Computed example of a mutant assay.
Amino acid sequence: MAHFICLTLLVFAGFHVTYSIHRNLKYYTTIHASELKHHIVKRGLKESNHPFNKIREVNFRTHGRDFRLILTPRKGVLHSNFQAYTVDGDGREHPVAVDHENFYEGRLFGEKSSHASVHLDNDGIMTASIQLPDETYHVEPSWRHLPELGNETMITYKASDVKLSWHGTKTSPCAYVKEGAHLEDDPEDELDDEEYSEAEDGPRARAKRQADQYEYTPTKTRCPLLLVADYRFYQEMGNSNTKITINYLISLIDRVHKIYNDTIWQDRAESEGFKGMGFVIKKIVVHSEPTRVRGGENHYNMVREKWDVRNLLENTSKTGTPSISTPASVPPGTTTVRG
């Protein structure tokens, strides 16, 4: 029997535009594209899919330290049959070519326990996430936050400097139900003197329940995703540029994939658990125009000031979101991205 994983991931990235950057970051700095020094360290004589056939080095300085990134081309987050399309206001799809060679992964020179995920566009602008043992550094185009700086500047910031909306409040961003909590030890399970009773064969105590022990080994570790960016996302996060929108979405999912892939999933602390779960992007659809609708109709990409989450998801499922063709043995996923 085939197993299916249905994923609906709603990414509200519009806060970058709606609120001041000073409200979201404690500290940041900017660098110009001319400050990035990059060159090819190694290029194989023949084209090859081997990760070390091409090695690129990128150098820059920010936050008081020098960064020397050793990078190789990366295609792992893209499905082997990856496709990208732009959709006009009448729903017509047009294919978009994506340069796979602009995506890299690697490490910081001198830091064995580091990881870098990088996209370099043809204008020399970098989008990157650099993970070190004690900190994560992010690099993004500055126009998303500081449009007055133009298109040749980037902002850099540390993950520890991000002001999360729930900081300083008593509320938590996530709630959960702990599976099997009733099987764990609690004060009621401890034996008191009163619970012992004398019998002919000696003391008798109430036996504790034992949790069932089992191990699970996943056979399918990648969930293929369909990413759909509406017109507002295309405008605000993609700078009204289809390729910038697509590259941003790929970089965004790559971060999510890294988190999932490195997470050890386990039911209980004593179980070994498993890891290596993640995502691949099979198709990206970018709406370059608002969808034209008749009177009384609703569409997730129509001109509308606000959506609440429930109505947006319902309209996404009702209005014929472009689908991905997925074999029954592969778990499908759908991702809706809205500004």
Rank of each mutant, 00 (worst) to 15 (best):
A13V: 00
E135K: 12
D134H: 14
I125Q: 06
G124I: 14
A33S: 13
E57N: 10
K26Q: 11
T127F: 00
G110D: 01
D66E: 09
N53D: 12
D88I: 06
F109W: 06
D123Q: 11
Y137P: 02
P73F: 01
H38A: 04
L71G: 11
L69G: 06
L36S: 03
I21R: 11
E35Q: 15
T86G: 09
H50Q: 07
T86N: 08
N49W: 05
F15T: 08
S34G: 10
V87T: 08
Y85R: 06
P133T: 07
H32D: 13
R23D: 13
P141R: 14
D134Y: 12
H79Q: 11
A13K: 05
Y28K: 04
G76M: 02
A13G: 13
T136D: 01
I21G: 09
G150C: 13
F109M: 07
P141A: 11
V58C: 11
Y104Q: 04
E47T: 00
S48E: 01
V77A: 04
F52K: 02
N81L: 12
M126P: 05
N81E: 14
R74T: 15
G44F: 02
V118A: 00
D134P: 05
P147Q: 15
I130V: 13
V58E: 09
R65I: 08
V98A: 01
D99F: 05
G124E: 11
G106H: 04
E105G: 14
P73H: 01
L146A: 11
I130T: 03
L146P: 06
A97I: 10
V98T: 06
K46A: 07
T62K: 07
G91K: 03
